[in-house]
Amino acid sequence: MLVKDIMKRDVITITEEDTVATALQLLQKHHIRHIPVIDEKKQVIGIVSDRDVRDASPSILDAERDETILTRSIKEVMTSPVVTTHPLEFFEEVATIFYQKEFACLPVVRNKQLVGMITEKDMLQTFIQLTGTHSPSTQMELKVPDRVGVLADVCQYFKQHHIKIVSVYGYPDPKTAGYKVLVFRIQTINPMPVIRAFEESEFDILYPYLEDQDEI
């Protein structure tokens, strides 16, 4: 999945001559936490976060609040230069940047121009979609040996039972080395026939889970 598929295209922007007050207003009005700062050519020259603005705002604890700070320019509070990403970047690449650099948001830039924004929230939503329910389906988990062709072998069972696969993902089995857990969402309300077939196969079905298997 590419950044362009999940990024927001309607981006609220600000210029470096704007005031801190304007930024504060925009952040509150649009319920956002970051505003890219652009120049007249739509190039990203900085980014201003709710924290930058908060740090610059007068404290509610001050006896005499210096409201003049709010009239200061964005240029004085913004972060620059900015790490950006490209619309054709893979989304997992962006996830890595978020994790390693502890960012929560990246402007998306193409031909030096701002074309979108991608946030931690968009990223989480994508993961929810990848692992979640987008059409009526039954979840089924299988523990399988980690070998060539195992996915194809497992999928044969669904094909034989004429059941469509809605989504699939896999991860290394945390308990047994050399095994993987495959998680399927399959389009059927009646998984019993395919479950019975799996029970007679070499694969361990982790569905339905036992009454008392939680040893966390």
Partner: peptide, 9 residues
Amino acid sequence: TGRYLYPGT
């Protein structure tokens, strides 16, 4: 719960 049962919602 839709964790294991159809339709998941």
